[in-house]
Amino acid sequence: MSQNPFDFSDFGPARQPGGTPPPAFGGAPAPHQGPPAASGGFDPWANQPPSAQSPARPNPESAFGDPGAFGQSGGQQDVFGLPGSGVAAGGALTTSGPPMIWFVIALGLAIAGFVIALAGALAGGLLATALVGWLLAGPVAIGALATYTRIDTRRRTETIYSAPAWAANLYWAVLAVCLVGIALGAWQIALWAGRL
Score class of each variant (00 low, 15 high):
residue 92 A to Q: 15
residue 196 L to K: 11
residue 30 A to P: 13
residue 43 D to L: 02
residue 135 L to W: 04
residue 169 N to G: 15
residue 52 A to C: 00
residue 86 G to V: 06
residue 18 G to W: 05
residue 136 L to V: 02
residue 69 A to S: 15
residue 196 L to E: 09
residue 76 Q to N: 13
residue 160 I to D: 11
residue 81 G to I: 03
residue 155 R to W: 03
residue 52 A to S: 08
residue 81 G to N: 08
residue 15 R to Q: 12
residue 154 R to L: 12
residue 69 A to W: 02
residue 151 I to N: 02
residue 116 I to C: 05
residue 119 A to K: 14
residue 50 P to N: 04
residue 8 F to T: 07
residue 60 P to I: 01
residue 137 A to T: 05
residue 96 S to W: 15
residue 109 L to P: 08
residue 32 H to M: 07
residue 146 A to G: 12
residue 103 F to V: 08
residue 5 P to C: 03
residue 182 I to E: 09
residue 177 V to H: 00
residue 16 Q to P: 08
residue 158 E to Q: 15
residue 165 A to N: 12
residue 57 R to I: 12
residue 155 R to T: 06
residue 177 V to R: 00
residue 106 A to T: 04
residue 104 V to M: 11
residue 67 P to A: 04
residue 57 R to Q: 13
residue 48 Q to C: 05
residue 87 V to F: 11
residue 155 R to E: 12
residue 120 G to E: 04
residue 65 G to F: 05
residue 179 L to D: 11
residue 118 L to A: 14
residue 127 L to F: 11
residue 179 L to A: 15
residue 111 I to P: 10
residue 26 G to V: 04
residue 37 A to I: 05
residue 192 W to G: 14
residue 73 S to W: 05
residue 148 Y to K: 06
residue 57 R to S: 09
residue 139 P to Y: 08
residue 93 L to N: 10
residue 27 G to W: 04
residue 66 D to K: 03
residue 91 G to P: 00
residue 4 N to P: 07
residue 130 A to C: 00
residue 190 A to Q: 10
residue 126 L to A: 12
residue 150 R to G: 13
residue 25 F to H: 14
residue 142 I to K: 13
residue 136 L to I: 00
residue 33 Q to T: 13
residue 79 V to E: 15
residue 71 G to C: 01
residue 3 Q to F: 09
residue 46 A to D: 14
residue 152 D to E: 11
residue 99 P to F: 00
residue 53 Q to C: 07
residue 15 R to I: 03
residue 50 P to S: 07
residue 96 S to Y: 15
residue 104 V to G: 14
residue 78 D to L: 01
residue 135 L to K: 09
residue 129 T to C: 04
residue 104 V to T: 15
residue 95 T to V: 15
residue 98 P to C: 03
residue 89 A to S: 14
residue 19 G to W: 00
residue 152 D to Y: 01
